[in-house]
């Protein structure tokens, strides 16, 4: 399906920038509509269609993750859903994880990165279709760290028309899971929100809305840790990064305006088929 290496020799630099920018707009648009972020399809596009080294693809993708996260966090912070204290606290783990991941890309082979990517794509497809069920909020917490740093929070639920107060627990488990999320984010150049949200709502008992908003707030900081390492290592190629970052950013901006006007179910089904096909392609590229 993607064996077009000979045709690629005919693509001029200008054509490449225009095609990649348009694909990135679509990726950012779809990503924001289904809540996955555009990063998840950028690496497959760059590697499978344009035959770019997976490490350079990851560098460009991680930059687009920062761009969209910084855009998305603006609306969420204004909604008052983000638990800033918990977010910053967990970022200690995600950023250390991201540095570990940035180091790991230098020692593990490209084939393993393709396999890992295929697995994360499948998991993301599952997470996108699976509706998360909220857990009962905790009224008290015996977690010493959570109490010491006062990580507990509250937000106004516009559906229930009341303020929800909640306590945070299992901070050490949360830190451990966030470390893994940081490693995955750096290794594959994705936001790994699908790993961050369960670390907060399942492990730490945070309400779903607060977990999702806090995850979006954290994604940019996590990505910045690996992007810093990738940048200084010369893995962020400006020729690739420019159309990707601008395209994904424009797509995400359009997506946020369309969010209410479009039936998310059809978009999700369409994105699901894209994720599954790409996952299989990435798996076979890993075998090659």
């Amino acid at each position: 399906m993607f064996n077009n290496a000979n045709y690629n020799k005919l693509v001029s630099p200008v054509d490449f920038i225009i095609i990649l920018a348009l694909i990135s707009v679509a990726a950012g648009l779809l990503g924001s509509l289904v809540g996955l972020g555009g990063g998840i399809v950028i690496v497959p596009v760059l590697t499978l269609i344009f035959h770019i080294d997976i490490r350079l693809a990851i560098g460009a993708s991680v930059l687009s993750v920062i761009a969209t996260s910084s855009g998305a966090a603006i609306t969420y912070i204004k909604d008052g859903l983000t638990n800033l204290r918990t977010g910053i606290f967990l970022e200690v783990a995600t950023t250390i994880g991201a540095l570990s991941g940035a180091f790991l890309t230098t020692v593990i082979s490209g084939n393993i990165l393709y396999f890992l990517f295929a697995i994360v794509l499948l998991y993301s497809a599952f997470a996108m279709m699976h509706k998360r069920k909220g857990r009962e909020v905790l009224k008290t917490s015996t977690d010493k760290l959570a109490n010491y740093l006062n990580l507990h929070g509250e937000y106004y639920d516009s559906n229930l028309k009341k303020t929800i107060k909640y306590k945070v627990t299992h901070t050490k488990l949360g830190l451990g899971l966030m470390y893994v999320a940081g490693v995955v984010s750096a290794l594959l150049g994705v936001g790994s929100g699908t790993l961050k949200v369960p670390a907060m709502d399942v492990a730490m008992h945070m309400p779903i809305k607060a977990s999702a908003a806090t995850s979006d707030f954290m994604i940019g900081v996590t990505a910045a840790a690996s992007a810093g390492a990738y940048f200084s290592r010369g893995q962020i190629n400006p020729f690739i990064a420019a159309p990707v970052v601008l395209g994904v950013l424009v797509g995400a901006m359009i997506g946020s305006h369309w969010l209410d006007a479009i039936n998310p179910r059809y978009v999700k089904l369409m994105f699901l088929s894209v994720l599954l096909i790409v996952s299989v392609e990435m798996f076979f590229r890993g075998l090659a």
Binding site: I88, F89, E91, V92, T95, I96, A98, L99, A102, F103, T106, L149, V221, A224, A225, S226, A227, G228, A229, Y230, F231, S232, R233
Partner: peptide, 19 residues
């Protein structure tokens, strides 16, 4: 906690050069 995160972010550029 916040200063720790900032130090890790600044350190990431150094780590990139080292590895």
């Amino acid at each position: 906690v916040t200063i720790t995160v900032l130090c890790i972010l600044i350190g990431s550029f150094v780590v990139g050069v080292l590895v």
